[in-house]
Amino acid sequence: MDLTGKVAVVTGASKGIGREIARLYSEKGAQVIGFYFTSEVGLQDTKNTNIDLLKVDISNTENCVELYNFIIEKYKKIDILVNCAGITEDALTRKMTEEQFDRVISVNLKGVWNFTRLIGPHMQLNGGGSIINISSIVGEYGNIGQANYAATKAGVIGMTKTWAREFTMKNGNVRVNAIAPGYTMTDMLNSVPQNLLDKFASQTMLGRLAQPIEIANVALFLASDMSSYITGTTIDVNGGMRL
């Protein structure tokens, strides 16, 4: 699954799943442009020189347009887009504030739309590309205290199916797919009590939670020519948690 000569944009590239995807793509030969917002520390220790880190607020449309224009001017093309950036603002619905709801929608849903509406048509004009949206098991099955997060991740799946239809029009040949990870050992789980993590692990067929690289491996497959006939689908990577 060689990505030599490819240009890949990865949002949320400084932590967790996004960091592993950026590193893996880089190791496989891609020029990676990784977006971060809160911290770039996660990729500072990489030995690869073909990762450029850019700070961007993906919920800010003007900021996204500026970054898109910069990338096209510098690299001339974008072959792969991974929409991985996301946040949580958890609370029971009766306690959730409007600000909590709006922040999660703005980053997790509008942020995905902001870059895809620019990069998708670019790929279409160039005759092809791969867009990979990181959804979640929560977007498929819901979760107590995460109405806002679940809504965004379900919305990402809906946009994935829509874009798979739109970006193949006029022989665009752009593949758009989603990955729905189960509970994965990233910073998002740092605040979850160990007894709950153990409970989640026991609910999987494999008896454990995922490591970020296991999600990144699926993203590599979807970015490569090995998945050339896969589009409009959601791949569950949850250890058999929901069967």
Rank of each mutant, 00 (worst) to 15 (best):
L3I: 10
L3V: 09
L3D: 04
G5C: 11
V7W: 10
V10Q: 08
T11S: 14
G12C: 05
G12D: 08
G12K: 01
K15P: 01
G16T: 05
I17G: 00
R19C: 03
I21Y: 04
E27M: 10
A30V: 06
I33K: 02
I33A: 03
G34Y: 12
F35G: 02
Y36A: 09
F37H: 11
F37M: 04
Q44T: 10
Q44A: 06
N48I: 06
N50Q: 10
I51P: 14
L53R: 07
L54W: 12
E62L: 14
N63I: 10
N63K: 15
N63Q: 15
V65S: 01
L67C: 09
Y68K: 01
I71P: 00
I71F: 02
I72C: 01
E73H: 11
K74I: 15
K76Q: 14
K77L: 04
K77V: 09
I78E: 04
D79C: 04
D79P: 05
I80R: 00
V82G: 00
C84N: 15
C84P: 11
I87D: 11
I87Q: 06
T88K: 00
E89Y: 05
L92S: 06
T93D: 07
K95V: 08
F101C: 06
V104P: 04
S106E: 15
S106C: 01
L109W: 07
W113I: 13
R117Y: 14
G129H: 05
S130H: 05
I134Y: 05
S135G: 05
I137A: 09
V138E: 07
G139P: 00
E140F: 02
Y141N: 11
Y141V: 15
Y141M: 13
N143D: 12
N143P: 00
I144Y: 15
I144A: 04
G145S: 07
G145Y: 06
Y149V: 13
Y149L: 14
A150M: 06
K153Y: 07
A154K: 08
G155P: 00
V156M: 02
I157K: 03
I157F: 04
M159F: 14
M159D: 01
T160S: 07
W163Q: 08
W163A: 07
E166I: 15
F167W: 15
F167L: 12
T168F: 03
K170E: 13
G172R: 03
N173S: 06
N173Q: 07
V174E: 05
V174G: 02
V174L: 09
V176H: 08
I179W: 01
A180M: 07
A180F: 10
P181Q: 09
Y183E: 13
Y183Q: 11
T184P: 15
D187Q: 14
S191M: 11
P193S: 14
D198Q: 14
A201D: 11
Q203V: 08
M205V: 11
L206H: 01
G207C: 03
R208D: 13
A210T: 11
Q211D: 12
L222V: 13
L222I: 11
L222A: 05
S224V: 06
M226R: 01
S228I: 09
S228W: 13
I230G: 03
I230N: 06
T231C: 03
G232M: 09
T234M: 01
G239V: 07
G239D: 12
G240W: 14
G240P: 05
M241S: 08
R242D: 04
